[in-house]
Simulated scan of single mutants.
Amino acid sequence: MAEHIAKEQLLEKMQSSYAIFTALLSPLSEAQLTTPGVNGGWSIKDNIAHLSAWHRRQIARNEAVRQGVEIPDPTPGMSIEEINELYYKQNKDRSLADVLDEFDETARAIQESVESLTDEQLNSPIDWLNGRSLAPYVAGDSYEHYEEHTEIIQHWLAQQSK
């Protein structure tokens, strides 16, 4: 059984990891943010759009659990790699300003959606999530995801400075 995580602890981890991620981005130039090759052909901007897409997916899950309803999988039968490629294609031509604005908006919205849930809603098994609780999905689409992409971007930036 998954470990219980209190809502306040989850929110704290989300806020802390978000702050670290945005601090990493803040001194970067537009050229650094839009240069491809960070991971595969993706730029930092593409990584940010990717995080926003997963935020939106999680916000929908959170809202469904809050309302006590089931939502269908928006990408049935697709692997994580296929979903990520889909999100990349949907966002690759968007402006940097638009992507950054959306990231701020969805980061705030995912935080608010978690705040609207109870500890029980976050930690109880949910049938349509294959009996898993919501909390690990929230972690995976927020603070764990920020940490993963922070490492990717830091590695790329270190390679650029050599």
Rank of each mutant, 00 (worst) to 15 (best):
T75Y: 15
L122K: 01
S26T: 13
Q121G: 06
D119K: 00
T22E: 14
L33E: 10
A49P: 05
Q67W: 00
A19L: 08
E120W: 00
V69D: 02
L51Q: 05
I80W: 12
S29F: 02
G140V: 00
Q9F: 03
F103P: 05
E120H: 04
A31M: 04
I71C: 11
G68N: 05
R132W: 11
E102R: 11
Y143V: 01
Q9G: 02
Y87W: 15
I5G: 01
E148D: 09
W128F: 15
I44S: 02
T150K: 09
H145G: 09
I153G: 04
Y18K: 14
K162F: 12
T34N: 13
Q160I: 00
E3K: 08
R94W: 10
T106D: 10
Q111A: 09
Q9L: 07
E12S: 14
H145W: 09
I44F: 07
K7T: 03
G41H: 10
P36C: 04
V138R: 01
I110G: 05
L25G: 07
A2F: 11
D98T: 06
A97H: 09
Q90I: 03
E115Y: 03
P125Q: 04
A97M: 04
T106Q: 13
A53R: 09
A53M: 08
E148G: 07
L51H: 05
W54V: 01
L11C: 10
D119N: 15
W156F: 14
Q159W: 04
Q67K: 14
R66E: 11
E151W: 07
Q111G: 02
L86T: 12
T35K: 13
A53P: 02
A135C: 02
E70R: 07
W128V: 02
E12Q: 14
V69Q: 13
N62I: 05
V99E: 14
V65M: 08
A158I: 02
Q121E: 15
A53I: 00
Q111S: 12
D104Q: 14
P125K: 02
W128Y: 15
S26R: 12
I48F: 09
A60N: 12
I152G: 06
N47L: 11
H55Q: 13
P72L: 12
A135N: 11
L86P: 01
H55I: 06
E151L: 11
T118W: 03
S29M: 03
P36R: 07
